[in-house]
Design a protein around this nucleic acid. Structure first.
Lengths: 145, 145
DNA sequence: TCTTGAACCTATAGTTGCTATAGCACTTAG
DNA sequence: CTAAGTGCTATAGCAACTATAGGTTCAAGA
């Protein structure tokens, strides 16, 4: 049985984050010691590692909640889990292409800068006037990493 | 003179967002009509367009605040603005490379999926066990877009 | 002129995924 | 036995908005 600090150590998830996951129901309520401290077994450790890994891959907590509830039911077809992962992949791809466009625009902006005074700074000028832009970078998707 | 709704229309910034920018001091307090409604002139419109464009390029509000205060002082050298933009560019690049790694891992995961039941779903299996991963995707930078 | 509906106002709470703080109780090494 | 370290709860804060409630003002049609 691990205390919350040890669990944090082995999973790489911080202590307050573990308590937060319990609070939002992503982890079941932990058993307690005589002195009211949380104690974790192997199952909890595996569940938390799963969550950690999925978070590292950018899955939102709600998606992780779905994945966990799917995996609790081994007989069901795996298509639903598949679909969640595919959604995540396409969100990642969308994010990359948007960021690539932003990077290009930022580079263009910086190349043009002649390092004089603010009065004729291209950075400020470009930001003030969208007509200078080569690409359309308006209204990107809001899906979070 | 534009009402807040018209200003929202021409700049593409939503009405509550404009009020929010005023509240946090990114926009100066707007003048008011006889009936206490905000009225905006050309200067406010340009300032807001600047903010919008910088946000589209992913600059955090604090960076925008700096850029605005720099541009209010046309005699100063442009190096400071340059530096802010360079920081933003490197944040964008870091974000892209991290996302690319995540994308690769997600693709690998999905390729291996044999579309059976949850019991032997690779998606779940891979998420549960980091040893399956080709790459290191732990502890990415937290800088926001 | 009256009325209706859109657009405005303020203030507050919610979003995501944590992180930090305050003020305690418990546990463990010396 | 005591002091440091870890644990507990509850609450507030972060970015950057978005949504809601409950009220006022404005513009246009009858």
């Amino acid at each position: 049985m691990l205390t919350i600090g040890k669990l944090a150590g082995v999973t790489g998830v911080k202590v307050p984050t573990i308590r937060y996951y319990e609070q939002i129901g992503l982890l079941p309520e932990a058993g307690r010691s005589a002195g009211n401290q949380r104690l974790y077994g192997k199952a909890a450790q595996e569940r938390l590692s799963f969550i950690r890994h999925a978070r590292d891959l950018g899955f939102p907590l709600e998606a992780i909640r779905e994945l966990l509830s799917l995996s609790d039911d081994p007989a069901r077809p795996c298509a639903a889990a598949d679909e969640i992962a595919r959604r995540q992949l396409s969100a990642v791809k969308a994010r990359i292409s948007r960021l690539a466009a932003l990077g290009t625009e930022l580079e263009r902006m910086l190349e043009q800068c002649s390092h004089g005074t603010m009065a004729d700074c291209r950075v400020i000028e470009v930001l003030g006037n969208h007509d200078h832009c080569a690409q359309d970078h308006h209204g990107g998707t809001q899906d979070r990493l």
